[in-house]
Design a protein around this nucleic acid. Structure first.
Length: 522
DNA sequence: TTTCAGGGTCTCGATTTTGT
DNA sequence: ACAAAATCGAGACCCTGAAA
């Protein structure tokens, strides 16, 4: 309870005016506590406060004050109704006097929020398969005909496809005989009259070896069965012309055979020659193949050596790159470390005022008379000490430029740095040390109605102690800030205080701007 | 005595954690 | 992934001390 809070009761006019405004916003009567309702009620109360304070005849009131008045009014109304009920139930009392309430009736009906959530049906889903099927059907031609297999086949079958094949045609009778072999008597066979291949078989067998019958289809002119030519005379036949002709024919036949024999020998010799040449060509080809294989082998060996050399070169390059990267990384690491050390030195340099973070800690150390061990990456690099009563161990959660710290409580006295580094921080005995001044516990009292408050559990008591200690610490911080004054806050780059009717308005800002307190051990 | 305001418990909804 | 349990936050309601 704030002792310095000025209690100015609401006048009757203020009460009526406030109740009128509350009546205009039935949402404040809604008992629902969901997010939307809470926000709506908050907005309604803000509007009520704005309207109330806009009246120049009234003293400005906060939302908390207005809401508290409303709660108290409701409690009084409820209490009065209870007394009225007891009067009605009780016997021996006087006439019933209805309770004259100073409060207007308000609508207790909660706003019907059964509004329809916008739902718009966007129709049946489109069946793509059907659409695709229709698309297939639409491919049919407008006249109804389709490209069915039957139509296509009909078209193919009815087409006049010319063919060049002559297989169905009968064999031509004009095929000439390529060769006819055989020994015929010199007076019978005529080389100038070729005969079909089938003709010899059709001819009758010869009656005499020396005089075979001539072919029936093409009889030689000399043995024609026809009557004698007009130039032949029976005299010639009788005087031995025929034997001479036969002999001459035999002589010519022998010459022909001789010529054929010579030709055969020539061809045989030519074949032998060709064979030798082929053998030579084969030898040359084999030689060329061997040379080609040797060339390829040399080429493969060369390329293999080249690839190995290339691989060795690449390995060397890779090794050099790795070495260079390693050296660069080490150099950059050294550079970063130097920058870090320089930054730390700069932070620790008292003359540098740009290091707001560090100086805020210095200011906090002076403000709160605590010891601040400032850690970065688990390394202690700064300590703000002023013979303190407590140690507050701060560690950056982000970069040095960050302004967020976590504070861990260490009990009692200053401990050495090594102990802090091990993070084996003993837990604070909060129950015995804090809060030393505040009223920690809640003592149940016997109520007039005979009921008792629920007995506090251990968890509830721990929660009470925790909250009490947090308040105690915040009170210390606030007292320190207030004792410093605005000039001191300005000197240490801390936010200025703003006041309104003896109330420090930005006390929360002052607490939260620089320090986020985390308590351990509870 | 009345009224304001601090502080307690309880309830409810939302969110997070935990177990299956 | 889901459900149950735990936790958190805000408000409602109530009690009580202190000041006017």
């Amino acid at each position: 309870m704030a002792e310095n809070a000025k209690r100015v009761p609401l006048s009757e006019e203020e009460r009526l005016y406030l109740l009128e405004q509350i009546k205009k916003y039935p949402i404040v009567q809604n008992k629902k506590t969901d997010v939307g309702t809470i926000a709506a009620k908050k907005r309604a109360w803000e509007e009520i406060m704005r309207i109330f304070n806009a009246n120049g005849n009234f003293l400005n009131r906060s939302i908390v004050q207005l809401r508290k008045y409303w709660e108290n009014a409701k409690a009084r109304r409820k209490k009065g109704l209870g007394e009225q009920t007891r009067d009605l139930i009780g016997t021996g009392s006087g006439p019933y006097n209805p309770l004259q309430s100073a409060y207007p009736k308000v609508e207790m009906v909660a706003t019907d929020l059964n509004y329809h959530v916008g739902y718009q049906w966007d129709g049946d889903p489109v069946v793509m398969e059907e659409a695709a099927a229709k698309g297939k059907i639409s491919i049919s031609e407008p006249d109804g005909s389709t490209f069915t297999g039957t139509s296509r086949l009909e078209y193919i079958n009815t087409a006049e496809i010319p063919t060049s094949s002559s297989a169905s045609l009968p064999l031509s009778a004009t095929t000439p005989l390529s060769h006819i072999s055989g020994n015929y008597p010199c007076n019978i066979k005529s080389p100038s009259t070729p005969a079909p291949q089938s003709q010899p078989s059709l001819s009758p067998p010869p009656t005499s070896p020396s005089f075979p019958p001539p072919p029936s289809l093409s009889p030689p002119p000399t043995f024609s069965s026809s009557p004698l030519s007009p130039r032949q005379t029976p005299h010639d036949t009788r005087t031995g012309v025929l034997p001479r002709t036969v002999c001459a024919h035999e002589a010519r036949e022998r010459m022909r055979l001789q010529e054929e024999k010579e030709l055969h020998h020539e061809r045989l010799a030519e074949v032998k020659l060709n064979r030798k040449e082929a053998e030579k060509r084969q030898q040359r080809s084999d030689e060329l193949h061997r040379l080609e294989m040797e060339r390829l082998h040399v080429k493969v060996e060369f390329e293999t050596r080249q690839m190995e050399a290339e691989a060795r070169h690449q390995n060397d390059m890779h090794r050099e790159m790795l070495q260079a990267a390693k050296e660069k990384y080490e150099q950059e690491s050294r550079h970063r470390e130097e920058i870090h050390h320089a930054q730390l030195r700069k932070l620790l340099e008292p003359s540098v005022h740009s290091a707001i973070v560090y100086w805020k800690l210095v200011a906090a150390e002076k403000l709160f008379e605590f010891v601040f061990d400032i850690f970065c990456s688990d390394k202690l690099f700064a300590r703000c000490d002023s013979k303190s009563r407590l140690i507050r161990r701060l560690s950056f959660t982000g970069e040095l430029s960050g302004e967020y710290f976590e504070a861990y409580l260490i009990d009692g006295e200053v401990r050495d740095v090594n102990q802090c580094l091990t993070r084996s921080i003993p837990q604070a005995d909060l129950t015995s040390t804090f809060p030393p001044q505040t009223k920690p516990s809640y003592v149940p009292k016997k109520r007039a109605s005979g009921k008792h408050h629920a007995r506090l559990t251990d968890a509830t008591r721990r929660k009470q102690l925790k909250e009490a200690y947090k308040k105690y610490v915040k009170m210390l911080l606030e007292e320190a800030v207030l004792s410093l004054g605005d000039q001191g806050l300005l000197q240490y780059d801390l936010p200025q205080t703003t006041w309104f009717v003896r109330i420090l308005r930005n006390r929360d800002d002052l607490r939260d701007t620089n320090y986020n307190i985390t308590l351990t051990g509870m």
